[in-house]
Design a protein around this nucleic acid. Structure first.
Length: 559
RNA sequence: AGGGGUAUAGCCAAACGGUAAGGCAACGGCCUCUGACGCCGUCAUCUCUUGGUUCGAAUCCAGGUACCCCUGCCA
């Protein structure tokens, strides 16, 4: 029924090709993927791409996808992030079932494997400090220099490593390194650090450990332990692949996963790096991690984006290996497409100006029926009221209309949606000459259709609400957070591109009475204005607050 | 004298030696009680570039060019 769901199985990409071949050749009998976030921040739309790829591939090929926390650095990780990440993945519509894992649950196994490497003279305890290690590492064009501790005897390494674990040494005093090749052109192979000492409690395993494995030493092995077949990550990990494989080659791991990389998502008019998002929050440039202008999943959720629209977006942008910039309008178009199908319509006057229908009796009113959806009668209808005084949007009236304007003008006529045709007979102005009220007359015979008594067709249809029946609300109009397509442009501070009009708060907006007690989750289309949803934090039954998810397309406004 | 990647339309992206899908955007037109939605049509003689192989090349080969990633005890 919904046009939002794409025939995803037909949209091909290189990862599907690889999996199809692996299944066909018998290399794997089923596919197991994983989404491996580090719980050091909130998820954003870029993570959604990864989530959709990993869970999507598993589901398309009848396999499973694990949720695994890559929690190897307790200095940056918190339980709050673990909770938020789980919630965001669930909200997006994915289910890891029983397969929730923590890299930290493999710490004992990893320790034993580290001991294996030491025993086989493939790892050693380093006494050099961080600065020295860096200096010895060499540069992109010059080979590194071997550490004097590289040839430390196995027994001594074993003893030192055990004492590192026991917490006998302070942070930074020692590190465990793999002995690979200090002259490798691939810097990640120049005796990479495997373990560092960190006297920091861990959100998942508490204070059980004083040493923590590095990402490189944990990730591939966790993949192997979980039986991951296709370990899918972003392009910047490509140079780590030889190291990923070195561990699998040199350790008695139970399975042989394979790493594949794809290009991360870049979106125009926003920033995606954790550091920058954090800075925006900490400097109060946005209201929090769930600010509706942010590309965080919590922000998009609060804004009113639907999980389906984000999944569909991820499907539409595809998966490739070339750096790409997706225009944010594709995201916006995706939520429009979804909400156009599902959102019940309502009328809301955002910038009210009163129109008094002088030929309609004071104190009288009548009920009209308005369909919830123009193309879906099965969605039913609601009752709206018509009376002598109504609110219309100030933007729908022009005293001196510009060319092509076909809403209300003095002496002109317009159709009130679901109501009557009205003619504006005059305006009332204040001392400054600003129009403060409109006067008009209605045609009692014009309830049906948009034709006047003499057969003409009115050009414009506008939304409105009865002043005696409307309810007041606050409406927040959001725009892009940045005014530049790429605020991350090198050489400039991204904050200088902040759009200072990215949120406009309107109070005293007049909504039709049927919105009283509206359901918090329901997204509405305020006719001609866009899609709106109540703000999950600030809206209450007494003081409704609506967020604009996205505008409607507006070819008139473009002119 | 480093290594690893990537170049197909304004933005993404298919193609697997057989004659350039699709989406978004844009532009015409139709429809419409939302300037919405929907519908119809147009939109790469050509795949970063220069050569080569071939009956045939976006696909294979050689040489250029541009951009991205890698020198955390981050992931």
């Amino acid at each position: 029924m919904t046009t939002v769901e794409q025939p995803s199985s037909t949209a091909h990409n290189f990862l599907k090709t690889i999996i199809e071949e692996d299944l066909k050749s018998g290399k794997h009998s089923s596919v197991v993927t994983r989404f491996p976030p580090e719980p050091n921040g909130y998820l954003h739309i870029g993570h959604a791409k990864s989530i959709c790829i990993n869970f999507g591939l598993a589901s398309e090929f009848g396999g499973r996808c694990h949720l695994r926390f890559d929690d190897t650095n307790p200095a940056k990780e918190e339980q709050e992030y673990i909770d938020s990440i789980k919630e965001s993945v669930r909200w997006l519509g994915f289910d890891w079932g029983e397969h929730l894992y923590y890299a930290s649950d493999t710490f004992e196994q990893l320790y034993q494997w580290a001991v294996c490497l030491i025993t086989e003279e493939k790892a050693y305890v380093e006494d050099l400090n961080a600065e020295q290690i860096r200096a010895y590492r060499g540069t992109l064009t010059e080979p590194g220099v071997e550490s004097p501790f590289r040839t430390r005897p196995v027994e001594e390494n074993l003893d030192l490593f055990a004492r590192m674990r026991n917490g006998e040494f302070p942070d930074g005093s020692h590190v465990l390194r793999a002995r690979i090749d200090m002259a490798s052109p691939n810097i990640s192979l120049r005796d990479p650090v495997l373990y560092r000492i960190l006297h920091t409690p861990h959100p998942h395993v508490g204070d059980a450990w004083k040493i923590y494995p590095m990402y490189d030493f944990a990730h591939g092995q966790a993949d192997a332990i979980e039986g991951i077949t296709h370990s899918i990550c972003t392009l910047e990990f490509e140079s780590h692949k030889p190291l990923y494989e070195w561990f699998l080659d040199n350790l008695p791991v139970p399975n042989r996963p394979r790493q594949y990389e794809f290009a991360r998502l870049n979106l125009t008019y926003t920033v995606m790096s954790k550091r920058k998002l954090q800075e925006l929050v900490q400097h109060g440039l946005v209201s929090g991690w769930d600010d509706p202008r942010l590309p965080t999943l919590e922000g998009l959720r609060r804004r009113g984006y639907t999980p389906a629209s984000i999944r569909n977006f991820c499907e539409q942008i595809g998966v490739g290996r070339s750096d790409s910039w997706i225009d944010v309008s594709i995201l916006e178009e995706s939520v429009r497409a979804d909400l156009n199908e599902s959102a019940p319509r309502a009328m809301a006057v955002l910038r009210p100006i009163k129109l008094v229908i002088e030929n309609y009796p004071a104190g009288q009113s009548e009920e009209l029926q308005a369909a919830h959806h123009p193309q879906k009668p099965e969605m039913g209808s609601r009752t709206i009221h018509f009376s002598r005084e109504i609110w219309i949007d100030a933007d729908d009236f022009m005293e001196t209309p510009s060319k092509g304007f076909h809403r209300l003008t003095v002496g002109g006529e317009v159709k009130l949606r679901f109501g009557y045709i009205v003619t504006c007979t005059g305006v009332i102005k204040d001392e400054q000459g600003a129009v403060v009220e409109l006067r008009g007359e209605y045609d009692p015979a014009s309830r049906e259709g948009i034709h006047t008594a003499d057969g003409r067709k009115v050009k414009g249809v506008i939304h409105w609400v009865s002043a005696a029946h409307s309810i007041s609300a606050e409406v927040r109009l959001f725009d892009r957070l940045f005014s530049d397509p790429n605020p991350d442009r090198s050489g400039a501070d991204y904050k200088q591109f902040l759009n200072h009009h990215s949120v406009e708060t309107l109070t005293g907006c007049q909504l039709e009475a049927a919105l009283t007690g509206a359901d918090m989750e329901t997204r509405y289309q305020f006719e001609r204005m866009g899609y709106f949803r109540q703000d999950s934090k600030d809206s209450t039954p007494d003081t409704l607050v609506f967020n604009r998810v996205v505008t409607l397309r507006d070819v008139w406004a473009k002119k």
